[in-house]
Design a protein around this nucleic acid. Structure first.
Lengths: 213, 213
DNA sequence: ATAATAGTGTCTGTCAGACACTATATC
DNA sequence: GATATAGTGTCTGACAGACACTATTAT
């Protein structure tokens, strides 16, 4: 599943199924692993079929194998979670009649909208993303390569669904070892005083972590 | 993979393979999922074949599918992590010539000892267990149903490989909401002043968390 | 009494949250 | 000027680590 932040909303990529079962229903994008393909490679391949991929974080989410979850046959799904910056409009893939971004609020509030057990995969992925923002620099995966502290804060606010104090947030991310790398340039794209632009730093875990309360 | 704490050491259950490939080599216990079996059910079944299971925590660890990881054919392994209190001596299963506990220090320091890619699964599982002790009450899974604060502290010290101040540790676990449930009874099995006995409480996440530094 | 472990109180430094304040842009 | 956003300084309350101290057992 692919998550992004666009227009102040956490969104997931969904496709409308063009074939049975669940024809016409929305589903998470996916596909079958090739006979000689490693699992992460298959995830990257499927991802690139649905969207122009650049600067995407990809990690294994979990494996779903309940008998009967696919009415055709026994299917074990190894779900991958992708976090990406706001991308150009998604493109329809081979088995997808249509692809679009849907807010997770919409998807979560209507559990029957998604085919198979994809609602369960969706909620697991959302919770994983929320948790990982705390102790990893993954929020940067939702940003363009160069971003301001305010843009990063908006990611946290959107994914967690909270408001954060801009001043304390700034002090905190600026103090987290290896989180942000200054570029030396500034931008006024949000008006007001020019803001510094940063790239993501080398840290893989944040200390101290960003805690949601 | 099964982890336990015994004699102040973090230990993993390993079996000596009785059949090819890797015949005679140590490996993590496992088996194949039945055609109509859910993944957690298969994990429970395999676990009960190797050890007398009681009061065991079980969670999905990750899925390993690199082509060539099993020389016979393409095999996708869905690894489960089990955390258990010190158990009676393990019993050999169907495809295992021998089963025993091995300290993770020994296993980790000799990466070629385990068959297949089991060393990678092992290190992933150890890291998962270490991380989960921080923000979940899972340390209690390594304890008997009733335990003292000192016994719980020994679990943390063993899994993390650190020394913790007994007084600060006591204050901290006692203050963590829903972590410990007093039984009202005491024990002197470690000598000295009688210690209260606790059961694990209803909390699923710890707040505040126990932080390793 | 001595030793061992259990548990509490207190001090101190660090850090999160609240928020006053300064800085630099546009209109 | 007014207004918007960026960023710093300061205060306060909570909490982690260090450790003195008390409590209750066995020998």
């Amino acid at each position: 599943m692919v998550l992004t932040v666009r227009e102040n909303e956490l969104c997931a990529l969904v496709i409308r199924r063009g074939i049975a079962p669940y024809r016409g229903r929305w589903a998470l994008p996916g596909g079958f692993v090739l006979p000689d393909e490693d699992l992460p490679d298959a995830a990257v391949r499927e991802l690139s079929e649905e969207t122009r991929t650049a600067n995407v974080h990809l990690e294994q989410l979990g494996t779903y194998g309940r008998p009967g979850r696919d009415p055709r046959m026994r299917v074990i799904t190894v779900a991958y979670l992708a976090l990406a910056a706001d991308l150009p409009a998604p493109t329809a893939g081979s088995d997808a009649a249509e692809a679009r971004w849907s807010t997770v609020d919409d998807l979560v509030s209507t559990p029957r909208r998604l085919a198979f057990d994809h609602h369960e995969i969706l909620t697991d992925g959302i919770e994983r993303a929320r948790a990982k923002l705390e102790y990893s620099p993954l929020a940067t995966a939702f940003c363009a390569p160069e971003f301001t502290v305010a843009e990063l804060r908006l990611v946290y606010e959107t994914v967690w669904g909270v408001r954060l104090d801009p001043r304390n947030f700034h002090r905190k991310v600026a103090g987290a070892e290896g989180f942000l790398l200054p570029t030396g340039t500034t931008t006024t794209r949000h008006g007001g005083r020019p803001a510094q632009l940063f790239r993501r730093g080398p840290a893989t875990i944040l200390s101290p972590p960003m805690l949601r309360n």
